[in-house]
Amino acid sequence: MEANKYISQYCVIENNSVAINGEPQFALENGSFSEFAKAAYKHFGIDYPKFFKMDNLSKLAFLTSEIILKEVVNPAEENDIALVFANQSSSLDTDAKYQSSIADETAYFPSPSVFVYTLPNICIGEICIKHKLQSENAFFVFGEFNAAFMSNYANLLLETNKAEKVLCGWVEYYNEKFKAVVYLVEKQGKLEHNEQTVNTLYTK
């Protein structure tokens, strides 16, 4: 029998609001995602100019993760935290923007700085770079939130010693509609890590 695992921290961003471990911490009543993201960045005292170059999916994934990681990561040592992220729309929000830049002969401006974000796993790269996380990572796509897969995959990374902790995330963004649920799985914590609790984080 494998030892129990726990969810030690979790952060949810949806409807222009941020909740940490179930407690509402910040909200912006009206505004686009971009305005909300900038306001949340300031509210949580994040100082990372690269943030403003990211596409919307990366901003969403970065913000939700950063709120957890800035309390957890010790920059003085190696942090073996795997990243396992998933969503429904892959990078289609940026894909559509990139497609419109090549659709018209009279306005043909394919840009490498847009093209690079037409991959969903770039958001993982952004988070890894911020905290120098040279650890296991993978990005998955599902028709809907898949608590069973996410909990299985996090467990097996821990049980096979591929990682000490696993940061899991559902990071969905398409055309101003977004929802992110990011949580840290490790050997200690308050919430037991299993399919039911993971589902509760997403639905409540």
Binding site: L83, L133, Q134, S135, E136, A138
Partner: peptide
């Protein structure tokens, strides 16, 4: 197997 990030640059 192993699937580990460089944490260096996105492109």
């Amino acid at each position: 197997d192993g699937a580990i990030n460089d944490a260096n640059h996105i492109s």
